[in-house]
Design a binder for these strands. Structure first.
Lengths: 351, 351
DNA sequence: TTTGTAAAAGTTAGCGCTAACATGCACGCA
DNA sequence: TGCGTGCATGTTAGCGCTAACTTTTACAAA
C-alpha cells in the first residue's frame, strides 16, 4: 500500500480542511472569513468553531493570487526623533508582516511637502494611514489626509475626533505620576517646562503636573512653569529662566527628553550636580534619555505596542469598509511606564 | 462581437506573455528566471530580451503559492543609536518590500543574549543575515552567525574577510576629509577622540586624522589624542583632559556624535562658546548631531542606501546559493558626506 | 542506418483562494 | 397549483507560477 506523498503544501490547514470539518463548502467558509453577507448564524458559528479548532488562517499568497487586493497602509513620519521612529517602525512592521499587510513608509516635512507626501501615498493606493507625532497635531496635515475616506490613525498625538482614530498614553495621568514621584522624593519646588503649544499632549501633561501639586497641597507657583517647544534649544532657555529665579526649583520636569537634556546641560554649566543639586526628569524615553549622562528618569510610552495596535485597528477598519460595514472611530489609551534612572534624587535640604 | 472581459488579473505581464513573445513555453521561462540549468544560451537570451521588453517581473504571490520558499533575511541590531537604526530600517525595508523579501528584525544585546538572538533568527529560517554596527565588530557575534552557511553582511563595521560581506564608508578618507576641513579653517591644534578600540573603524578614523595632519606639515602631538568608547560619558572625560592641557586645542574632532556632544557640554560648562571658542565636530550624523545646540558639523554615512545595498547583495547571494552557484564575498565602499553645520569656525587667534 | 543518451523543451496538475454563476429551498401571492 | 422572490449554499474555473513528469531534439557511437 502506498501512501501518496503530498508534493507541496505547507502542512497547515487550508480552507478545505475547515470546510470539511464544518460540513460546508469552501466557498461558504470564504464568505464567513471575508464578512460576506447571506450566511446563516448557525453556519457562521459552526465555521468559526472549525477555524478555531484547526487554528486556521488564510494563506495570503493564495488570497492575493485569487484577486483580492492586498491591504496597504501608509505610514507618514517627520522629525526623526529617531528612537521614536524606530519603535514605530519596528512595531508596525512586525505586525504588518505577521498579518500580511503592506506598509508604505514615507517621510514628510511640514510645512513644505506634507500635502505632496500624503498625496503620494494615496496615489500609491493605500487604504489607510498612520500619522505619527508630531504630524497628528498639525491641523493642515490632518485635514489633508482625512479628505478622502480612508481611515486615519493618529499615533501618540492628535485630538480624538470623528475623523481620527487615536492611540495615546494618558498624558495627564503620566505627568501626574511623575510629579507625584518627585513629590514623594521630597521636592516642593518643582519646575515644569511645557511642550509645544501646538501639540495637544502638552496641555494634558501640564494639567497632570498641576493636579498632582494640588493634591499634595503644594501651592501652584506660576513662575516655576516655563513655555518650551519640545526642542533642545527651547529647553536651554527655559532652564536658564528657572535657574535664575530667586528661589530656584529643586527639581525640573520637562515635557520631553530633549528639553530635559537641555536642563541637565544648563545645570552642569552652572556647576550644579544632577541629581544631587537638581533633579531632572523628562518624558518619552527617547534615545536621548539614555545616551546622556546622567541617564534620565522619564516616562516611557509603549510606542512599539501602540504602533502594532494602530496597524490592527486600521486593518479592521479597512476590512469592515470592504465588507460594507462601518466601525465607529475608536480612541485607545495605552499604559505608560515611569522609568527610573539616575537623574532624580531627594532635594538636598531634606537630607 | 463580444470582447471577453478579463475577470481578474493585475494587468501586468505574466510568464505566459513572456513565453508567447519569446516563442517558448512558460516552463522554460521559469527555468531562465530561476537560474535552472539545461537552457540553450540562445534561448536564454531570447527570453531575457522578452522579459525586458514586457518589463516582466514574477508575481510573488503566485510563486509562493507554487511552493517556492520566500527569501527571508534577518536583521540583527543592538544599542539603539536610534537615528542609525531608523535609517537602517527604512532603507532595508524599502528594498525588501520592493523585491518581495521578508525581513525579520531582532534586537540583541551582547554579551547577554546575542547567541540566543542569532539562533532565534536562524530557527525562524532566515537565509541570510544583516549585522549592524556595533554587532559586526564583536568577534563572538560574528563567529556565531557565520557558523552556519548563510551569507552575512556587516553594515557599517566589521573586518572584511572571507566569511563576511562588508559595506562601509571609507573611514580613513572621511576622517581625513574632516581633519583637512578643520585645517582649512585655520586650526593647528586639533584634538582627536578615538572611538571604541574594539571597533575596527576607530583605528581607520584615527589614521585618517593623522594622515591629514602629516600632509599639512603639522607635527603630531600625542597629548591631543584621547581614547574614548563612543559613549557620551567617555566623551566627557576625554574632553576634560583635552581642555585641561597647558595649550588646549582650538578644535576637537570626536570619532562619533555622542562624544562630540559631550565635548560641547564640557565646553559650555567651562564657559566656552562653540564654535567661537572651540570648534567641535563629530562623525555619523546621528539624531544627536542635529538635536543639540549648536548642531554638529559631522560626517554622514549614507546608511539607508547602504542598507538597501545589503538587502540586494544578500538576495543575490541567496539566489545564487539556491541555484547551486557561489558568489565571492564582496566588500563595498559607500560615499560619505561632510555635513557642515554650526559647530565649526576658524580659531579665534587667526581672525 | 539504427540506436542510445543527454540536453532542451513541453505538458500536466495543483498550490489555496475567491469571483461569477448556478442551484436549492422556503415563503408568499395570484 | 404554479410562479416569482430572495436568501443560503454549492460548483466551476482560474489567478500566475513551478514540481514532476514526458516528449522532442541533437548528436555520437554502434
Amino acid at each position: 500500500m502506498s501512501i501518496k506523498q503530498q508534493r507541496r503544501g505547507t502542512g497547515s490547514a487550508t480552507i478545505s480542511d475547515v470546510a470539511r470539518l464544518a460540513g460546508f463548502s469552501p466557498m461558504t467558509v470564504s464568505r464567513v472569513i471575508n464578512g460576506g453577507g447571506n450566511v446563516k448564524e448557525s453556519t457562521r458559528d459552526a465555521i468559526n468553531a472549525a477555524i478555531k479548532e484547526l487554528n486556521y488562517s488564510p494563506n495570503p499568497a493564495a488570497r492575493s493570487l485569487a484577486g483580492v487586493e492586498p491591504i496597504r497602509i501608509g505610514l507618514l513620519y517627520s522629525n526623526p526623533s529617531a528612537a521614536y521612529l524606530s519603535e514605530v517602525l519596528v512595531g508596525s512592521l512586525d505586525r504588518a508582516s505577521r498579518i500580511d499587510v503592506q506598509l508604505v513608509v514615507a517621510r514628510c516635512e511640514p510645512p513644505e511637502n506634507y500635502r505632496e507626501a500624503a498625496e503620494h501615498l494615496l496615489e500609491r493606493g493605500v487604504h489607510g494611514l498612520i500619522l505619527t507625532s508630531p504630524l497628528c497635531d498639525l491641523q493642515e496635515v490632518v485635514d489633508v489626509v482625512t479628505e478622502g475616506d480612508q481611515p486615519v490613525v493618529a499615533l501618540a498625538g492628535g485630538k480624538p475626533s470623528d475623523d481620527l482614530i487615536t492611540i495615546n498614553v494618558d498624558d495627564f495621568e503620566a505627568a501626574h505620576a511623575m510629579t507625584k514621584h518627585l513629590i514623594g522624593l521630597g521636592h516642593r519646588r518643582i519646575g515644569f517646562i511645557i511642550g509645544s503649544p501646538i501639540q495637544a499632549a502638552s496641555g494634558r501633561r501640564l494639567e497632570g503636573y498641576r493636579a498632582a501639586l494640588a493634591e499634595a497641597g503644594i501651592p501652584a507657583d506660576e513662575k516655576l512653569i516655563e513655555q518650551g517647544h519640545f526642542t533642545y534649544r527651547s529647553g536651554l532657555a527655559a532652564a536658564d529662566k528657572l535657574m535664575d529665579l530667586a528661589v530656584p526649583p529643586t527639581a525640573v520636569f520637562a515635557s520631553n527628553d530633549d528639553m530635559a537634556a537641555a536642563v541637565v546641560a544648563v545645570a552642569h554649566r552652572r556647576g550644579l550636580d544632577v541629581p544631587n543639586d537638581l533633579t531632572v526628569c523628562g518624558f518619552d524615553d527617547t534615545a536621548f534619555a539614555s545616551s546622556i549622562w546622567p541617564e534620565l528618569t522619564t516616562i516611557r510610552q509603549p510606542i512599539a505596542e501602540m504602533a502594532r495596535t494602530a496597524v490592527d485597528m486600521l486593518t479592521d477598519e479597512i476590512l469592515a469598509h470592504r465588507a460594507g460595514k462601518s466601525l465607529p472611530r475608536e480612541h485607545r489609551i495605552a499604559a505608560f511606564e515611569l522609568i527610573k534612572r539616575q537623574s532624580d534624587a531627594p532635594p538636598k535640604n531634606s537630607r
